[in-house]
């Protein structure tokens, strides 16, 4: 329950910090950190325009997408407190619930019958398919290391002791950041601020969404970022006392958001056809974690 509240709080300013960091780096003052949230609320009060081509899929898809993200957040634990939903193998549920949302966002893009949105849908489907093994193998490695198989138990019994385990922590953090960037369609895979539809992934899929639905989709992105931030924070929170844990949580969120902003300021988007290969390297990173865990446990030779 605690994690839900904290993630909701973090989601209010997360994207704002990214935008602020980007504008500061490029020498502008930039909007306040709550501006994206204000935009979302403004959208929630607006009417909508629907395409003639669309069907009921287009109507329900944003709600399903949003609900799936909320459901995934319920699984995320915080420190000593498990998430609302916690059972053995809950991270499988986490990944599959997110996939459900993705399924609906893809078919809602196809529902418009537009060539651009189909293009975005095709890319999103391919990229998210390629990124999944990395997450599963990483979680599998930590399950192996701790002998546990739920988010809460894994995080609570994860102790950093030796150099290898620190290396593993760093690798896992990097991996989670990359997964978050890909899942949220940010640099270096997708550029949310590009001006050409042909070069977009996620933004082009929601070209036809408007009003409340668009607000839901945008807010779901904020939530997703905060959710991955919470996962990263969990690596470091461990069994800290509550006050410290909350502090660490927000510190991690802010640092993560600033990192994302810096990353977006100083890197260019990959060429679309190289994205797939890049995403696959994440799987090999997760295999590195797997081997590291084997080394730690002395199972390796």
């Amino acid at each position: 329950m605690l994690s839900l509240v904290l993630i909701l709080l973090a989601s209010l300013f997360f994207t704002g910090i990214i935008i602020r960091a980007k504008s500061l780096v490029s020498g502008r003052k930039g909007p306040g950190i709550f501006q994206p949230m204000k935009d979302v609320i403004r959208l929630w009060k607006k009417g909508s325009v629907f395409s003639r081509t669309t069907s009921f899929i287009f109507q329900i898809a944003p709600s399903v997408y949003f609900a799936s993200v909320l459901m995934a957040i319920l699984v995320v634990p915080f420190g000593k407190a498990p998430g609302l939903i916690s059972f053995q193998g809950d991270f499988v549920f986490f990944a599959y619930v997110l996939a459900l949302g993705k399924f609906f966002s893809i078919i809602s893009a196809l529902d418009t019958g537009s060539s651009f949105e189909g293009m975005g849908a095709s890319r999103e489907a391919l990229f998210s398919m390629l990124v999944e093994p990395a997450f599963f193998i990483m979680m599998g490695s930590f399950a192996m290391l701790t002998g546990q198989s739920s988010f809460h138990d894994i995080f609570i019994s994860l102790h950093f002791g030796s150099q290898i385990s620190y290396a593993l922590g760093v690798l896992a953090t990097f991996l989670l950041i990359m997964i978050a960037m890909i899942e949220n369609s940010r640099m270096p895979v997708d550029d949310p601020k590009t001006h050409l539809e042909l070069t977009m992934v996620h933004e082009v899929m929601i070209l036809d969404n408007s009003g409340f639905d668009l607000g839901l989709i945008l807010y779901a992105t904020n939530l997703k970022f905060a959710m991955y931030g919470a996962l990263i924070a969990n690596f470091f929170v461990g069994a800290l006392p509550l006050a410290w844990a909350v502090l660490v949580f927000f510190a991690v969120q802010v640092v993560f958001a600033m990192l994302a902003g810096l990353l977006e300021s100083f890197s260019a988007r990959f060429r679309m056809n190289h994205n797939a290969e890049f995403i696959y390297t994440l799987t090999s990173l997760s295999l590195l974690i797997f081997f590291g865990v084997l080394l730690l446990m002395g199972k390796f030779i």
């Binding site: 929630w44 949105e117 009003g211 409340f212």
Partner: peptide, 18 residues
Amino acid sequence: RQRAGRRQPVMVGPTWGC
């Protein structure tokens, strides 16, 4: 979503073709 959208205007148009 349905409750929020009840009082808002809804328009129907062609798919955005850039």
